[in-house]
């Protein structure tokens, strides 16, 4: 998808009107993710119940791609188990490396719209910030 179209049709909606932006009252895990070179800075908050991601929210600031990517990610991980969410992050990273299969893209749902970021090396870090943060948060969590 052409970049301007990507912004207009998908990124803007999640960047300007995010569903999951905010501060959670009682998160199980909070992890900050930062891209020092561009100033993308998010706080990812996850609520884990019985090994499942019951809810997730984020706050912070950054470019539209980083913010939209987290919002789309949260759409995709709520209701998933810790393992499923980590596996989904693996699929997203694979897609950004240009290695995603059709099934991976399908599993990623709307987040698959960011697949063309694979051709924009300067924006890769923006797209994966939320996913990296989520992976790190879940891998360090032994609840």
């Amino acid at each position: 998808m052409e970049l301007k179209q990507l912004y207009r049709e998908i990124v803007n909606e999640h960047n300007l009107h995010p569903t999951h932006r905010g501060i959670m009252a009682d998160p199980t895990i909070v992890l900050r993710g930062v891209n020092p070179s561009c100033g993308d800075d998010i706080n990812l908050q996850l609520k884990i119940e019985n090994g499942m991601i019951a809810d997730a929210m984020f706050d912070g600031s950054g470019c539209a791609i980083s913010q939209a990517s987290v919002d789309m990610m949260i759409d995709g991980i709520i209701g998933k188990s810790r393992e499923e969410a980590i596996a989904l992050a693996g699929k997203f990273m694979g897609m950004i490396r240009g290695e995603g299969s059709e099934e991976d893209l399908e599993a990623l749902d709307e987040a698959a719209a960011l697949q063309d970021v694979a051709h924009m090396p300067a924006r890769v870090k923006c797209a994966v910030l939320g996913w990296h943060t989520m992976e790190e948060a879940l891998e360090s969590f032994h609840g």
Partner: peptide, 22 residues
């Protein structure tokens, strides 16, 4: 309301080269 990296990426679509960042 627009992050500098988004400005630079969109301008690149119009073949305009600027720097964005710190």
């Amino acid at each position: 309301g627009v992050h500098p990296h988004d400005i630079a990426s969109v301008l690149n679509e119009d073949h305009i080269c600027i720097r964005a960042g710190h």
